[in-house]
């Protein structure tokens, strides 16, 4: 592991030298909405707490062709996934989410699409100096400078970045830009520790997760679900913006004699998510759907992989149109235990 310093003036040179498509947060409508490929005009990273749409869409695209086929032939062609991507500025929570979701895509049967994407990306994270209002990563096993899932972690030290490599992939990446970097001294590392501590102290929200995973099954018919889901609109904002939500739907699309099979994101908050062909729906109302969302993250996933499928990024709280707040729901769960 090496710790190097990069002067911020050298940013354009730095991103220019990397071999692979560089993705950074893009500002649209005055806000960093999502990651996008570098256009070459950026001289630095934008100011952002986190992007609205998580970078999960880079490794798990919202729509992904699985294969194409033709009516009069017996062959299927799968798309080639071969683009190397370097994601710069991903927050530690989102990188951690990729690591959590990877467990699922490796379990049972390996998912070639997800794993190929995952293999081809290099994650260069940016530690948080100023976590958002609804961040609670420290409660669910992460932190503003968590390195899980990352290849390199950067720290913003005002006029320069401190880059620390975590994996061999990260080492290889830094080799490409060696000339631009200088070795970091002990004083910088001490400054980094201070930054991390300051950031951790700024996190104001927290969840006490103890006993929740074991307790949730017992609350199956608890009145709390009715209460917390009463105002739910049944839209997909919370799940689509969640970095760990990974449900997808498979659909076919035809035109003339050609067709493709693709997968798209799906959301357990949608009515048709569990609707059977017969018309029966085992989760007939938003109460059951909300219950499933919480259970999946805080109970089923823990049972299966011993990990909470929530990284505390706070997006579902920030962007819920009706202020359904997962921290508050968990507090009520805890109370009902």
């Amino acid at each position: 592991m090496s710790a190097m310093l990069l002067n911020k003036d050298k940013w354009p040179e730095f991103v220019g030298k990397l071999s692979g498509k560089v993705w950074v947060p893009k500002v649209e409508e005055g806000e960093a909405i999502r990651f996008g490929p570098l256009s070459g005009e950026e001289s630095k990273l934008p100011e952002y707490c986190n992007t609205r749409v998580p970078p999960k869409e880079i490794v798990f695209p919202e729509t992904e062709t699985l294969y194409c086929f033709q009516a009069d032939e017996h062959e299927m062609t799968a798309p080639e996934i071969d683009e190397r991507k370097i994601i710069i500025g991903i927050r530690p929570c989102d990188a951690r989410a990729m690591k959590i979701v990877e467990k699922l895509f490796r379990w049972d049967v390996d998912d070639p699409y997800y794993l190929k994407h995952r293999e081809l990306v290099t994650l260069v994270g940016l530690a948080c100096n100023a976590p958002g209002l609804n961040c609670f990563c420290t409660s669910v096993g992460g932190g503003p400078a968590s390195t899980e899932g990352l290849d390199i972690i950067m720290f913003d030290l005002e006029d320069r970045y401190l880059l620390e490599t975590i994996t061999e992939k990260g080492e290889a990446l830094l080799k490409e830009v060696e000339g631009l970097l200088e070795e970091a001294g002990q004083d910088v590392l001490a400054q980094k520790e201070k930054l991390i501590e300051a950031a951790e102290n700024k996190i104001s929200r927290s969840v006490d997760t103890e006993g929740i995973a074991e307790g949730l099954p017992g609350l199956w018919e608890d009145p709390l679900w009715k209460r917390v889901s009463a105002s739910c609109l049944g839209c997909g904002t919370c799940t689509y913006l969640c970095p760990t939500c990974h449900c997808f739907d498979i659909q076919d699309e035809t035109e003339g004699f050609e067709a493709r099979r693709y997968r798209t994101w799906d959301s357990c908050m949608f009515e048709e998510y569990t609707r059977h062909a017969s018309g029966h729906n085992p989760r007939p109302t938003r109460r059951e759907r909300t219950r499933n969302r919480i259970n999946h993250k805080y109970s089923y996933y823990v049972d299966k992989f011993d990990l909470i499928a929530c990284v505390g990024c706070g997006r579902c709280i920030n962007y819920c149109p009706v202020n359904i707040d997962i921290v508050e729901i968990l507090r009520q769960v805890k109370e009902a235990l």
Binding site: E28, I33, L233, C235, G236, Y240, L241, S267, F270, P321
Partner: peptide
């Protein structure tokens, strides 16, 4: 084109 390309189809506009 720029606006619609951004849509993630969460359908919150419809549901609300």
């Amino acid at each position: 084109e720029e606006q619609f390309a951004r849509c993630i189809r969460c359908y919150s506009c419809r549901n609300v």
